[in-house]
């Protein structure tokens, strides 16, 4: 139910003239986009308050459907560009929209250090478990042994846990959900938007066209239900064995720590530097 009273409705962000969008039937990215716009509305944001940085890939097309300040950059580099934007223009809400390839495979180094630095940026990772845009190859989050266009005989590489990686590296807000649990997407994005420091929200999304078709989940609702079956709330993790958790998606809030963001620390550095300059 989208009836929300507030000055700027979520529809002010939606570039309707560019719909229908390019994502495949049943792809979850339209749901993630809508949830983000709901979160913008609930957060009292207007298009001019927001800078959306997108990378390259299916999710990277999201800025085509937005009224906001948008920056479409090279593959894997949305986070460092977002970092520069935020540092130079601190009143803006800066959100980096990245796929699993963008954020954790080619962009993995930036994900680690953006988390460690705890830069005041929101990373919204849409994880469809493969490289959809280029035809369904496996990425670093593709489940072990899955078939893809480049792993016909099974993916030989275990998947990376994006949330654990980001949390371990120092991100102060980390949460994962799936497109099946649609209402939590908006909730977590809302929490991320109001969080001081680096916040990462990962949303696992169905990819019926490639990952689904290669892994007997080609019907959109079928893959959505599969996401539900594969999800384990983080609260229940402690009473489950390693075996039970294999290839499962742990959902929920991994970290929600108050504390120093990069910008709050750097403001202290600027005051020390100014004092030294004045004393010269």
């Amino acid at each position: 139910m989208s009836k929300r009273s507030c000055e700027v409705s979520w529809k002010a962000f939606l570039r309707e003239e560019n719909l229908p969008h390019q994502w495949c039937p049943g792809c979850g990215y339209g749901v993630i986009l809508k949830s983000m716009l709901y979160a913008f509305e609930k957060g009292g944001l207007a298009p001019k308050d927001v800078v959306v940085v997108t990378g390259i890939g299916c999710w990277g097309k999201a800025d085509d459907y937005l009224y906001a300040n948008t920056v479409h950059v090279t593959h894997g580099r949305a986070l460092p560009v977002a970092t520069g934007i935020k540092v130079a223009n601190q009143s803006m809400k800066v959100i980096a929209l990245m796929g699993d390839g963008d954020s954790a495979t080619i962009g993995g180094n930036h994900l680690i250090h953006s988390s460690r630095r705890n830069i005041d940026v929101v990373a919204l990772v849409a994880n469809n478990l493969n490289y959809g845009m280029t035809g369904g190859q496996y990425s670093c989050t593709t489940p072990l042994d899955s078939r893809t266009s480049t792993s016909w005989y099974g993916d030989p590489e275990p998947a990376l846990d994006v949330c654990r990686l980001s949390e371990t590296a120092g991100a102060s807000f980390v949460a994962r959900t799936t497109v099946y649990h649609a209402t939590t997407i908006e909730k977590y994005i809302g929490m991320a938007l109001s969080h001081e420091g680096f916040s990462l929200v990962e949303v696992i999304s169905p990819c019926p066209t490639y990952f689904g078709r290669y892994n007997k989940l080609s019907k959109a609702s079928q893959m959505l239900k599969w996401l539900k079956e594969q999800s384990i709330p983080i609260e229940r993790v402690k009473d489950l064995s390693e075996e039970d958790l294999k290839e499962k998606f742990v959902t929920g809030v991994f970290a929600d720590k108050k504390g120093h963001s990069f910008l709050s620390r750097y403001r202290e550095i600027q005051s020390r530097a100014r004092n030294e300059l004045e004393s010269e």
Binding site: V71, P80, V81, T83, G84, V87, A88, N109, H113
Partner: peptide, 17 residues
């Protein structure tokens, strides 16, 4: 930054900012 790729990316971001 963590490498030169991130450095030029951050410079581009700051200029955009």
């Amino acid at each position: 930054m963590e490498d030169e790729i991130a450095s030029i990316a951050a410079v581009i971001g700051a200029s955009i900012g």
